[in-house]
Design a protein around this nucleic acid. Structure first.
Lengths: 208, 208
DNA sequence: TATTACCGACAGGCAGTCGGTCTATAAAGT
DNA sequence: ACTTTATAGACCGACTGCCTGTCGGTAATA
């Protein structure tokens, strides 16, 4: 029973299957056999569309990051919402993420998926930091913030938050987590030269 | 030609070989065959001493982290050197590292070694941060620093510096690197509530 | 003589390759 | 208009070579 489909359609079928399997069992724990059985194709077909197993992962990350950074960008350019609120919205967009990309983030935080996590972190850091830095610069012209290093500040915050909250790099109880969050807001205010408590106030409007 | 050795000696021979090979070819790129051929032992012998390939990596990391954190601790408790200088010495101990551990850090920063890097980062962050935080608290009592979150500050700095300077997470030219370093010192001063330029001065005494 | 260290053949599973097959569509012939 | 032929894109599955981990058995040491 041979079924011929448009190349792009097949590619997406494979990516969808891989996405689910990687989430369940990790990259190393998933065999190419698992993937091609799930899609219902032969070995050769898989390697017709992708040149290697890692190539599948890269394509998956690409698809994911395009969506995510696009969403962040969209929020960032909306000059009608105040600067501080916009920052928070951008950050929230990273964690929640929409529909199909959701699964990927839920199960990535296992040591199994170290490489995948590293690659995602890389596109996240280099993709989102410039977006955030632009908002900060806007805040500086408005007199809200004051720092000679807006980009580096956001880079630091991005990397730290990503590592602390998304990895199991630092084992934490819920208490410790809350304490970390509180400290982070305080530290961001200091880094950005914002008035003490100015970020905290806006944060509380969103809960958590 | 069967040679019998003390278990611990063999274990270390295996770890030394693995250390070198992982550095050259990465964890995934190194086969257990490579290791046992380099040591000159049979398959069974390798698995007599280690229960899996990953077990070898874990033992390697353990050996490495014990040395490194020990060295950091030693510097930290020497109350005769001034606080700021001590901090810098601890951080420098992480990058240079002595002899046998040196190689491991030199070649880890390839995407191949993602898992290994993640594991090392984990022990580094959770092992060194408390040491640094203690020095900061000392600095607070001396009136040098002023922050309600000494631990979280150092955690942020550790994670950021490790990611930025040790990974190829963020591609950088030498100029950009220098700019990052400058920004980092500035930001650390802000985080710790130190007098502006107080860290910078001491840094310059060390060069780089 | 018992324990500890060691051996190497073997099983099972894996990623990636390759020659060949099917099918849809376009071109050529009638 | 209607069939035949050509071509390229999508697909197939057997096969290769490598890899990790196991196990029954063997030599050395105390």
């Amino acid at each position: 029973m041979r079924v011929v489909k448009d190349a792009e359609e097949r590619r997406n079928e494979i990516l969808d299957a891989a996405n689910e399997l990687f989430a369940q069992k990790g990259f190393d724990g998933t065999s190419t056999n698992d993937i091609l059985e799930k899609v219902g194709i032969a070995r050769g077909t898989l390697y017709y569309h992708f040149k290697s197993k890692e190539d599948i992962m890269d394509a998956l990350i690409e698809r994911y990051s395009v969506r995510l950074i696009g969403a962040a960008q969209e929020i960032a350019v909306d000059k009608s919402t105040p600067v501080v609120e916009r920052i928070i919205r951008v950050i929230m967009a990273l964690n929640i993420s929409d529909g199909s990309s959701q699964e990927i983030m839920e199960h990535i935080h296992k040591p199994q998926n170290a490489l995948m996590h590293q690659k995602i972190q890389k596109v996240l850091i280099n993709g989102v930091t410039p977006i955030l830095a632009d908002i900060i610069r806007e805040g500086i012209t408005q007199g809200l913030f004051n720092t000679p290093f807006p980009y580096e500040c956001m880079e630091m915050v991005m990397i730290y938050a990503n590592t602390i909250f998304d990895d199991d790099m630092v084992p934490m109880t819920n208490e410790e987590l809350a304490h970390r969050a509180q400290a982070l807001v305080y530290n961001i205010e200091r880094l950005l030269g914002a008035e003490s408590g100015s970020l905290m106030q806006v944060m509380q409007m969103f809960g958590s």
